[in-house]
Each structure stands twice: as C-alpha cells, then as structure tokens.
Design a protein around this nucleic acid. Structure first.
Length: 799
DNA sequence: AGCACGCCGACT
DNA sequence: GTCGGCGTGCTC
C-alpha cells in the first residue's frame, strides 16, 4: 500500500504529493489525515497523509518511518478545506494544513550526532559523543564541519533525526491500587499497629475508586512522598502518568446562567436562525444589532438549540475582545461544554483545549480567527461576532478570511452561519441587501435605554481659543464632573507610547528608523525612540543630529503621555492605562479590567483593546481623544474603520441605568464618518460610503487582489513589480484595472524596499492561474531568498 | 527548506 | 594537489 504525503517543507518545489510505501504492520492503520514521519533526501521530516492508494507511478519508494497519530488529526472535511484554502489563497498545501492545527503540533526536527558503525575510539570527539549522542549545534561548537563530514563518510558518526512535537501532553505522576479491595483489606489488617500512615492511604483506596496524584494524596491525608513510595515498592500501589489538561480557567467559578426572556425584536431575529437549524439547511445571516441590543443572547439561545440536536457550535470573537466577560457568559451558560482558544493562552493550553475538541469532550468553542478550524465533525452553527473586525483576516500565509472559511464549512454541514455586528462591513451589508445573506435587524437596545448623546469637539477651534492641551475644555469639565459624581470614564486613544514622532524645532529634522521609512516613536519609560515595525531602538538625542540645536522635541500624543497629562490636570483621578505595553504580561489584561470594574479607578485610558465588549455599569462618559486618527491612513477602508471605531467606543457608555455621554475630539469634525457615527446612523453612512466605493472602484463593487514585492535593492524591486503589472495588464480583460507599480505606503521595512501592484476586477475567472504563473516565474529568485512576493486575493492591509 | 554535488579560485 | 566558496537541482 502507498501513502500519498504532503511533506512539511513549505517551498514551491515540494508543494506536491510524495509517495511512500506503507510497511506491512501499518497497512491496516494508516489513514488520510494522520501525521507521519518520512525520509526525505538525507533527512527525516513530518508529513500529512492525504490519501492511501494501491500503487504508485514511482518505481522505488521509501517507507514511512513512523506514524504519529492513532486517529487522524484532520478529517476528510478539513483536508478538503485545506486544499480549497490552498487554491483560494495561493499558499502551499502544508501551510494550509498547518494553519488548521494548534502550533504545538508543528513538528520540531532535532539533529543529534551519534556513534556510527565503525568504532574509532582514538578520535577527539569520541568521549563527547559516546555517552548517547550530542546535539548538532553543541558538536559544531567544539569541532568543525570538516571533521564531522569526514567522520560521517567513514561511518564513524551518524546524524539522527528526531521529529518531535513542540509540546507534549502534560502528565502528573499518580498512584492507584495494584490489588483488589479485598486484598487491600487483608494487607492492611496484617500491618497491625505499625505503619499507621500507610494504613490510612490503603483505607483511602478501599473507600474510593481511581488514581490519585502524589500531590493530592499528600495534601489529603497529610502524609509524605516517601510513605506513598514505600507502598509502591511493596507493590500495593502502582505508579502511573495521568494526562492532565492545562486549564486556563482553573479555580474560577462560573455562576450558572439560564436563558433570558427575549424581547419581541430578539424573538423575531432568532426565528429564521432556529428555522435553519431545525430544517438542516445552510444559510448565512447578518444580524445588524446596535450596541446593547442583545446579540449575545441570540447567539446563546441558537447554540442551545444546536446542542439539543447533539451538534456542535463555533463562536468566533475578535482577539481583542476575547475578554473574560465574554468567556464568562459562555462558560456560565454551557459550563464544561466550552473550550476557549485565544492568543492569551500558552502553547500548551491551546493544545489541550484543541484536544478537548478533537476528543469530543466539548461541544462549543469560543475563540479567535483560527478557531474556525475547530475539528468538530457535526457542526450545527458558526457564529462570527463583530463580523466587521479586520482581525478575522489573517495577514500571513494562508491569507484567509475567517468569514469565507465559516461559510464554506457551513455549506458542508448544511448549518447556519451567523454574522453579527453593530457596524457591519460594507461587503456583508451589501450582500445582505442583495439577498445573498439574510438580514436580521435589531435596532433598539434591550432595556430601551437611549443611545448615548455624542458631542463632536472641533479641536481647531480649541487651538484658536488658546487651548493647546490634548483635552478640550468640554472634555475637561466633564471629566471633573464625573470625578465629583464618582462615576467612571473611558478615554480612548488609538496610539500607544508617548508621542508619534520626534522633531527638531529649528531645522525640521524628524527622527526616522535607519532600516524602515517611518518615523520613530518616543517611549518615555526608558527614554528611547523605537520603530514599531522592526523594533529598532535608540536613545533620545540631547541635540539635533542635523543642526546640533537643542530644541529637539516630541510631538503628537500617545497613551503614556495622556496618562502623565491626566495626573497633572486631575491629580485626584485614579487612572488605569491599558495598551500593549501594560498588558504584555499574562493575565494583566484581566487584572487591569477587574481593577476598573471594582471601582478602584476613575478613568480607564486605552487603545483599540478597550473599544469593544467592555460593559461597566458605572461608565457614563466616553472620551475619544483623536477621533480622526484613523481617517488619514492610506486605506480605502479608512472611513469605514473610523465609523466603526467611533460607534464601538460610544457603545461603552450608559449601558445600564445611568445615561451615557460621549465626546469625540477631532480636527476634521465635518467628515461624514464622524458626523454619522455621532448620529448613530449606520444607514446613511452605508449609502454615503457606497457612493465613494463605486466611484473609485473598490469593494463591494469590485474585487481586489494585491501583489507585494520586496527586495533589498530598489531597482530590482521596481523592475519585478513592473514586469508583474505588465504581465497582468496583458492577460486580464479590459474591464479590470491594474494599478502600479507604486511604492507601498511604507516604502522600506527592515532594509527592504517595498512596491505593490493592485488589481481591481469584476469577473476574472483565470486570475488565480495568472497569479500562480507569477509565483512560478519568480520562484527561483524567491527560493534563493533575495526576492519576496506576497499575493493577497482579499487584501485588508494596504500598508 | 535543507542538503549534496559540482565547478572554480586560493591556498599548502 | 586540497579546501572551501557558492550556484544548481533534487527530495517519493
């Protein structure tokens, strides 16, 4: 029998099936979707079995050397999904398969030098290697490549390839009785008055079933390791390794919750979803529900119905809002049926959560983007909350959008896919309007609470009036007011660090990263300037490197700076700052939020990450310091992003009894995305923005594809991009537009020049083929490492 | 991606 | 004549 294998080598030339003979003893065992270790050239690597066949076109086949799984880790459905992804996103098949598994399962190949068949105990390395082998790197730090190669040729040394998993299941050493209960009784009675502690332990095992870990037993019976050990050596107890799940939510109690009574509106919205579940057919729904309209309850009750049918559910949540609050809601409703997958977990924890899904120990998974690949086999619903979020698009290979994958899986399982948002993406809303998706609207808040009043402050006027601080007078007054009333405020700024750039007031010099074409950001904590793209760091200069003036200052505002300013103007305010810098440590995210939730702070100041999902009853004021910060990014979605962000942030205020108020500061207050967000008017925004999209030929009117080229040399970069653009212009129809070559908005990162070419099209059935041709044509230059070409068939990042 | 093989210039 | 540099091509 032959195994057709995709090997774990992400390269153009190896992106195909390789045939291996299956040794007799494994013939019955090997199935598609299992991982195997195979010899590949002189080394050993991991691979995925795609299919099993009777024969091969190849005369001489090597044998599969190891089988890594007892049951397939990828089902037929997921294998097919992988190849669909490969085709759609133009990535290597391994990359697609790998993306569906937790990182811990990725193979880790280690090389060890061991003694060969011919004995040479004279050799200088003999003592080092003879004791069971030496790591490849360790050997080479003592001896040269030349010596190694010669010894290998002489059969005196050998290289052993070990293909291991990155993370193993966690185990704990436990003991269980080696004898029956009656026998234990007999043994205990024989002990008489001696070894009382040992008798206690035996008593425990007579009274209770099952294995217990050393630690538990020691705590429970107040005994010591050696007491247990002696029972083990007498063969009364037996040691065993028990597999353990790393439980990220260990020790936390989730108060069970039951279904809430739905409002009439919610009732209307959930009905078509339940119908789709009951009737077993695929349909994509878009719930357009304002913040606080009770979308989550609809999700929960839909899932409930799915579970009643014995099926499974996937809930996708943007990484950033996978807050403990969200997790709590699902855990309290569905208890231990829930697995959680997000980037805050350690690699091992993710692995364990994944195994719970794979072993069917859970029925619901709540997770970020990659949870869309959860290995369920009887899916009943897929929910994507905050559907418009750009984090559902993966910005590395495979460059997929979770929404597309969800719909693909929904079609396969004939189950509904529910997209939910207060500010749907234009793409989705347009599809809903056209009837491709079913639109469900929830335009009132559950508690009939009015939407918060939003005031826009023109910061140009503030300047004219002589206010040069980052807080408008209005915002300052309101902040003070809330402090007095002991109510809380959320302050939002889309920028971390201390300032945006460093400039000399005399000559206008701006500090830039020497490796990237981007200005450096000042970080006060250690007095350095940092590049957010390559991590380059340098000291803040005491004088201008150009004109030696001492008037070199930082401009713009970051969260650190705002925090400092706040303590100056409102010294009595207690501020919690949340950004990547303060939440880097595990669990700090949750800690800061709890602190604020328990009323230990008056102001929560933060970036993106506080924009969604937070629900604190005592928050009555939301301040957006730079409402237009996003408007000026070079991206056709800039207005959309601004509208979404402002709407999301405003939704944080007045969610309960106290009415909320929002202040948006802006230098361009008249922009429609800001005005319409202030009016909570999604409809008008949608229509207004669609006009622009149509006019400039962007989605949802046109499809996009983006080719990004980068190389160390500028001329080479331009040259290649020109060739690509020329080729595409020749091949594509006249209705399609090929833009470029143009320099990327950030023309250089990490000493590499970056150019791009964008394609706008309506129908282009062979586009994938042409793009593949481009990849093939430059594959040699790419594999040599000099040239990089990345192709995105659904770009979300224009930078 | 690795890794071997082969060809070429620079050295013992 | 030998070593090691890198360009080329293969991996079932």
């Amino acid at each position: 029998m032959i195994a057709k294998v995709i090997v774990d080598v992400p390269a153009n030339q190896t992106d195909r099936l390789f045939d291996y003979a299956i040794p007799k003893e494994w013939e019955e065992m090997i199935e598609p979707g299992m991982r195997v270790v195979v010899p590949f050239g002189p080394r050993k690597i991991q691979g995925f079995v795609i299919s099993v066949a009777e024969e091969s076109e190849h005369a001489k086949l090597k044998e599969v050397s190891e089988v890594k799984d007892v049951t397939p880790i990828l089902t037929k459905e997921l294998l097919d999904l992988g190849f669909w992804l490969t085709e759609k996103t133009l990535c290597y098949a391994v990359s697609a398969l790998q993306a569906m598994l937790p990182a811990a399962m990725k193979a880790n190949v280690t090389k060890t030098i061991v003694l060969g068949n011919r004995v040479n105990d004279e050799a200088i390395w003999h003592r080092m290697v003879s004791s069971g082998g030496v790591k490849w790197d360790d050997f080479l730090s003592h001896f040269s490549h030349k010596e190694l190669n010669r010894a290998i040729k002489n059969d005196e040394l050998e290289v052993r390839y070990d293909v291991k998993e990155k993370t193993a299941p966690k185990t704990i050493l436990s003991v269980s009785p080696a004898l029956s209960k009656d026998e234990l009784q007999v043994v205990r009675d024989k002990m008489g008055n001696r070894a009382l502690k040992q008798q206690e332990i035996i008593t425990h095992f007579i009274e209770q079933e099952g294995a217990v870990s050393y630690k538990e037993l020691m705590d429970m019976l107040d005994t010591t390791r050696s007491t247990i050990k002696s029972l083990v050596s007498k063969e009364i107890l037996r040691e065993e390794e028990i597999e353990l799940y790393r439980d990220p939510y260990k020790g936390r109690e989730f108060m069970p919750s039951t279904a809430l009574e739905l409002t009439d509106l919610q009732e209307q919205a959930i009905r078509p979803i339940l119908k789709s579940i009951n009737e077993h057919h695929h349909e994509t729904f878009l719930i357009h529900g304002v913040t606080g309209s009770g979308k989550t309850e609809i999700y929960l009750q839909s899932i409930h119905r799915v579970l009643e049918q014995g099926k499974e559910a996937i809930v996708l949540v943007p990484e950033i809002s996978l807050t403990p609050q969200m997790v709590t809601r699902f855990k309290s409703r569905f208890g231990s049926e829930v697995a959680v997958l997000h980037s805050g977990l350690s690699r091992g924890e993710k692995y364990d959560e994944w195994r719970k899904i794979h072993r069917k120990e859970v029925k619901v998974v709540v997770g970020a983007r990659s949870a869309v690949f959860a290995p369920f086999t009887n899916l009943g619903i897929i929910i994507i909350d905050e559907e418009h979020e750009s984090s559902y698009k993966q910005e590395e290979n495979p460059r997929y959008h979770a929404r597309d994958v969800a719909i693909k899986r929904g079609e396969h399982y004939k189950c509904p896919v529910v997209l939910g948002s207060a500010t749907p993406s234009l793409e989705s809303y347009a599809r809903a309007t056209k009837g491709v998706y079913t639109l469900l609207e929830l335009l009132d808040r559950v508690n009939k609470q009015a939407m918060p009043a939003v005031a826009i402050v023109d910061m140009r006027e503030e300047l004219r009036a002589g206010n040069r601080s980052m807080f408008s007078n209005d915002l300052y007054d309101k902040l003070k007011d809330r402090l007095e009333k002991k109510e809380q405020t959320v302050l939002f700024l889309n920028r971390r660090g201390y300032s945006t750039f460093v400039m000399c007031r005399d000559c206008g010099y701006v500090a830039e990263c020497p490796h990237c074409d981007i200005s450096l950001t000042y970080h006060k904590i250690n007095g350095t300037m940092r590049c957010h793209y390559c991590g380059h760091e340098e000291r803040f200069p005491s004088q201008c490197p150009e004109c030696e003036s001492e008037h070199i200052r930082f401009f713009g505002t970051g969260t650190q700076r705002v925090e400092e300013e706040l303590t100056k103007i409102l010294p009595e305010a207690r501020v919690v700052r949340m950004d990547v810098d303060t939440t880097r440590r595990k669990g700090s995210h949750e800690k800061l939020l709890n602190q604020f939730g328990e009323g230990k702070a008056d102001i929560l100041l933060g970036t993106q990450m506080i924009a969604k999902g937070l629900d604190f009853p005592n928050v009555t004021l939301v301040g957006v310091l730079a409402g237009d910060a996003m408007l000026h990014i070079p991206d056709f979605r800039a207005s959309e992003k601004t509208f979404q962000l402002l709407t999301q942030v405003s939704g944080r205020a007045g969610r309960h009894l106290l009415p909320g108020e929002v202040i948006v500061q802006s230098y361009t207050p008249e922009h429609y995305s800001i005005e319409m967000a202030a009016d909570h008017d999604y409809q008008s925004f949608y229509h207004r923005e669609m006009v622009t999209r149509k006019q400039f030929g962007y989605p949802p009117f046109y499809f996009l594809a983006m080719v990004n080229v980068s190389h160390e040399e500028l001329t080479k970069t331009v040259d290649v991009t020109e060739k690509i653009a020329g080729y595409l212009k020749d091949q594509l129809s006249k209705q399609s537009v090929v833009l470029g070559p143009v320099a990327s908005p950030i023309p250089r990162i990490k000493d590499r020049y970056r150019y791009q070419c964008m394609i706008k099209y309506k129908t282009e059935p062979n586009l994938t083929h042409y793009l593949k041709e481009i990849q093939k044509h430059f594959s040699k230059e790419i594999s040599r490492g000099g040239l990089q070409i990345s192709i995105d068939t659904q770009p979300y990042m224009m930078m």
